[in-house]
Design a protein around this nucleic acid. Structure first.
Lengths: 215, 215
DNA sequence: AGGTTAATTATGCAAGCGTATAATTACGCG
DNA sequence: CGCGTAATTATACGCTTGCATAATTAACCT
């Protein structure tokens, strides 16, 4: 006869759903409150479970953070390339560039998230691995797209030539992404997108402006 | 008759020196261990004082962090522009660009420091102010230099034209700075510098390569 | 149905955190 | 030289943190 009706009701859920909910809660908290605010208790509360459950799915908080980081970076890359559509390589590149510096890819939360993780990247080897993989994953795809664009123009698309171009284009994109996210109200609507397209075009030695919508 | 010889010996120092020592300790710790590692106790230990003293000079830890952030950002800008020397505007710009993506301005510690602070920038209005002031401070000086370079070439140096160019150049610089610091071993020695000079030149529509040393 | 078990909650603990306050001591000044 | 005081140390408090462990319960299986 256990009359303890004040115990919290709950529903059992699959491991994947729970893990994802916990990851989502973690990301939301880090974005809004910073890593400092993403405590085990706060994460549990936001995911509408009790803190003990976290330990049931992630043997340590580090593991949870690693999972969250991985998902965030993958989502960021995927979100960006998903918008890189168009009839010609040039149009796809322009669309990619615009998407990179426009919400939801470029916004305060994304940047805050990324910065919040960077600290742990330096200290955790697994985080470092994810970081490197994510960076190269994005840049390699960018490099491939640049090669296509150059080929279309009949220019040499040797990897020796493309690599520095990809690094440079990636840097402009990252820089603008960063500044747009960290200092949004310093720029006008669409200003960053225009600058991004213009700059990437200049680096590649071609005019990219106006190619997003047409062609 | 107070026989308590185990009390720590100390030397009195001026407020400025102590404050600076505390700031330096804070920066070192955040760079090495992350914000999490920069506890009041750890800072005090590194500065070779006891934790109580921190409260004597900074009424709250937030104040200390703000002071540290201010100093770091100012030092970064100053360090960079200090190397922007040369006979012609073009040479000065090239030197500035190279300095921006080369140690000690661009290294893991600087980037880690910057990222570590970003979290607090979003939450503290005073930090935000320093952030904005620092960003614009750098960019405005960059814009002025770009205007000089364009004028030398006999091109229009209107602020309406220069602003987007400055934003773009600043973005490449920031992007490369970031990637060089966060992923140093992904690039070869001097690779980032070469790419930076090349890209800024492309954005400005001129050849900047090889202008650092000569002219 | 009813027993089994894994999912979930509840509770507790030791360590570390920032901050407050009282006790000491180095050092300048008359 | 000794006195005053500001600089510094010492100690403690309340809170939060990540983690561990025991108690409970929802849902599946036969």
């Amino acid at each position: 006869m256990t009359v303890q009706g004040d115990r919290r009701k709950f529903r059992r859920e699959g491991a994947d759903q729970r893990k994802e909910a916990l990851v989502r809660a973690t990301l939301g908290l880090i974005a809004e409150e910073g890593v400092r605010g993403a405590t085990v208790r706060a994460i549990a509360e936001r995911a509408e479970v009790t803190q003990g459950l976290i330990r049931h799915y992630f043997s340590t908080k580090e593991d949870l953070v690693l999972a969250a980081y991985t998902q965030h970076m993958d989502a960021l890359t995927e979100q960006t390339f998903a918008k890189a559509e168009g009839a010609t390589p040039r149009a796809r590149l322009a669309a990619l560039v615009v998407a990179s510096v426009t919400p939801p890819v470029a916004d305060a939360a994304s940047v805050a998230l990324w910065a919040g993780f960077l600290t742990q990247v330096r200290q955790d080897a697994r985080m470092q691995e994810v970081h490197a993989r994510s960076y190269h994953g994005f840049r390699d795809r960018l490099e491939a797209l640049i090669a296509e664009v150059l080929a279309q123009d009949g220019r040499a698309a040797d990897s020796r030539d493309c690599r520095p171009l990809a690094i440079a284009c990636n840097a402009v994109i990252d820089g603008l992404w960063l500044e747009g996210g960290a200092l949004a109200d310093a720029f006008e609507e669409g200003e960053l997108a225009a600058i991004a397209v213009q700059s990437v075009g200049a680096i590649l030695g071609m005019n990219l402006t106006g190619t997003e919508a047409q062609e």
